[in-house]
Design a protein around this nucleic acid. Structure first.
Lengths: 208, 208
DNA sequence: CATCGAATCAAACGATCGTTTGAGCATACG
DNA sequence: CGTATGCTCAAACGATCGTTTGATTCGATG
């Protein structure tokens, strides 16, 4: 296993990139700072020097990608809801596409596995962290869904959005039975995944 | 934090029960044998004596619950598909209900968080393990879904079952925004969860 | 050129990890 | 009674963990 980082990047960037990939592979506790710094090609002490602690590094890895995801989702939602006739599929696409795009790009493109793992870690401090960094985006999407699905009660709507999130997280984690075939490009596979998710979710949201 | 185990159970049982709860809380690598044996009220060496290694213990924890889940799902499917007119909702109930029941009972009732975490861990050996222990059950459900949804191509069907699994896993992990309110009993909350999952999934499976 | 501060380095720190050891205890069997 | 067997126990093993230290390097600044 060779280095996976661009040696021209700054030490901080190289640590973040290597950490993202290694956390996705081995988990937060399973990935040691020695493995991490070796993969990044930096000194062991660099993590504590630049980030203070391993926990802070974990938080920075999250923040970096969550900020991207939030920004792309909001931009996509703004465009979708700006149309003359906004439809449910367009809003779902704005919700789903940025997440899947981020899970296939950037460094080793493994951030979403990290996120899926974090979902399973499931402690309250993480819940609060995600709520603080995610809440306003989810509220905007929820409002748009509520406008498009006026027949649903608030509780019913929350439930269904939650289930859409579950299906999306599962698809992003790459754990499902569906594996990309070698004769299908990654881009095409992603588009198929998005199409399946949007169709399935739209029907689920519209359920009688 | 006091002991959480019945002191009358055998050492092996007490280890399994404590391990299930602690793995769910702290993860497989985060939960140490010293925490685990202390919670179980047994000696540190007891794990290696009875299970050989920590890895074997993890596997036993999985096997114990997966066997239960498989048996209940197959029994429920047999009953559902034995009806004169089997409908999609009944098969989905047979798929979903045993999983949610198991996630709310047994020891601290936390096994499904362990499973959800394992989904996120996501390495190939685990995939193979789950495939070996899960495969025949999933094949039976898939066959029944295929009979009830003849308009779907095989690939389309696999995709949608996978998304149902994602929604179910997410709901089981308890991470969603929906929290049980204190004035709702656990049983009622579970029934509501099942109802939402079945309705959402049925619509998703039937999507045009 | 001299000096200062940021960055990097090898080395070591104490803590904790999974596992092993060998003695001690209890019950069952001849 | 003597011994064999299954189990529990305190203690220790080496390995690895995150973190800290103090020296060293290096470019920028006065």
């Amino acid at each position: 296993m060779g280095d996976t980082v661009n040696s021209s990047a700054s030490t901080k960037e190289r640590i973040l990139t290597a950490a993202e990939a290694l956390f996705a592979q081995r988990g937060f506790e399973g990935a040691s700072l020695r493995q991490l710094t070796a993969a990044a090609g930096v000194n062991l002490a660099a993590v504590n020097y630049h980030f203070g602690s391993k926990d802070n590094l974990v938080e920075e890895v999250f923040k970096r990608r969550l900020d991207q995801l939030n920004a792309r989702r909001l931009a996509a939602l703004k465009q979708a809801s700006g149309q003359a006739e906004t439809d449910l599929e367009a809003v779902l696409d704005a919700f789903i596409r940025p997440a899947l795009e981020l899970s296939h790009e950037g460094g080793a493109g493994l951030f979403m596995r990290v996120l899926a793992r974090a979902f399973a870690e499931h402690d309250d401090s993480l819940r609060k962290f995600l709520s603080d960094n995610y809440g306003h985006v989810m509220r905007q999407f929820t409002a748009e869904f509520a406008r498009l699905l006026p027949q649903l009660s608030k509780e019913e709507l929350y439930w269904r959005i939650d289930l859409v999130t579950g299906a999306l997280t599962h698809a992003m984690s790459g754990f499902g039975i569906i594996q990309r075939k070698s004769d299908v490009s990654e881009t095409i596979h992603r588009e198929q995944t998005i199409a399946h998710l949007v169709r399935f979710s739209a029907a689920g949201l519209r359920a009688p």
